[in-house]
Design a protein around this nucleic acid. Sequence first.
DNA 1: GTTGTAATATAACATGGGTTTTGTCAGTCC
DNA 2: GGACTGACAAAACCCATGTTATATTACAAC
Lengths: 227, 227
Amino acid sequence: MAMSADDRAQIAALPFKMRTIDASTYMLREGQRPTRCAFILDGLAYRQKLTPNGEREIVSILMPGEFVDLQNLFLDESDHDIQALTRLTLAEVPILALRQFIEACPAAGQALWIDALVEASIHREWLLNVGRRNARSRLAHLLCEFSVRFKKSTLGDAMAYELPMTQEQLGDALGLTPVHVNRVLKSLENDGLIARKKRQVSVTDWPRLRDAAEFNERYLHLGQIRS
Amino acid sequence: MAMSADDRAQIAALPFKMRTIDASTYMLREGQRPTRCAFILDGLAYRQKLTPNGEREIVSILMPGEFVDLQNLFLDESDHDIQALTRLTLAEVPILALRQFIEACPAAGQALWIDALVEASIHREWLLNVGRRNARSRLAHLLCEFSVRFKKSTLGDAMAYELPMTQEQLGDALGLTPVHVNRVLKSLENDGLIARKKRQVSVTDWPRLRDAAEFNERYLHLGQIRS
DNA sequence: GTTGTAATATAACATGGGTTTTGTCAGTCC
DNA sequence: GGACTGACAAAACCCATGTTATATTACAAC
């Protein structure tokens, strides 16, 4: 995320192994100690945490161009699960190689720092979302974020994209039940903010959706990186 | 957070400026571009985000031994406010000096990486907390976390500590109203899990509090750092 | 001691979102 | 085609938490 073409080229010079995995495959489970760090070339993944009685919270959605588990560069036991949301194409780099690379190449190290810091910023925005906004704003906010991030990943038009998540997964990302996600999605559709055809979501009234979401993309830190 | 004595010594060699500020002073506001990065020597601080209509979510509590705004090493506009919770003693380091230092001293760079990654992990646990646990578990979880982190910061006994937050602030950290925080605090006290005398909280039944919270300290990544 | 202020407490009432259940629809496997 | 499955939908009910209002307490300022 947010790397220059030069940084990308340098990263591409690392020893890596291409891999493709199916949707819903676990890439990492809580408590494991991975030895590789994956970079997403295509597809979507997500991080989840579970309570002891099986309730789930999806805490991140990961998109192409992002590193999946920078945590494990420096922390040993993973604190969450990582799962493929769609079929996924990855480039896997050995952790030790990546760490040596960071030391040798400050520009690339900076790119990884930015990747990690932006994800923490998104975590904070989600905390505000789940903690202080009602279901309608929460869902609208997630749709706005996807719109902007999909556009950045050029995964689709910003205003009409395939939403590869079930309503249950949306609920788990928002702290809601799937039943209520269904209610709110229909309400947003009835009010003309979005249209849906199967899982194809299109934003039909961006200004009103943005207002309903109180969406401000500052927290995504797009293209405003310190030099 | 989680630095060796050696790392701390190296950090202490940086150009820094000591500063003391009063409780509730703003250290940074959303949208600003700071030029210094503060390290907490004494006292507590917190990060908050606001919705346009003034609702607040406290997204982090910062303790002695932690860096306050590593985000601003590499991202330009702050995405949240930082405010002193108590009277605070800080060591402020110019951002450019810190960045040069990271490049020159990989061990220190690693310490900062760990600091940032652990905070992101705490963000994720809070997301699970706010999204999927009820008010009682949420509050119990926060008390457990404070207990463990206070002990680490040697700010007090793990089982009895001064809680420098108002019930309103607790509510803002948990996505609850102050009225409900009050209800739940009393309930935890009635059930014998905690005792309170003014703001002095003591854990009177750690096993039951931990169970009520579903607390597992793995996410704090204490002393289990990759070498 | 009086006044002012911030924090805590308590009660009555309202409601957003959860729970449960049952149904529909679209794939896909045989 | 029929059977099976996973996702989406819809309605009825209800409870955890929010809202509003009004004490009460602690403590600082004077």
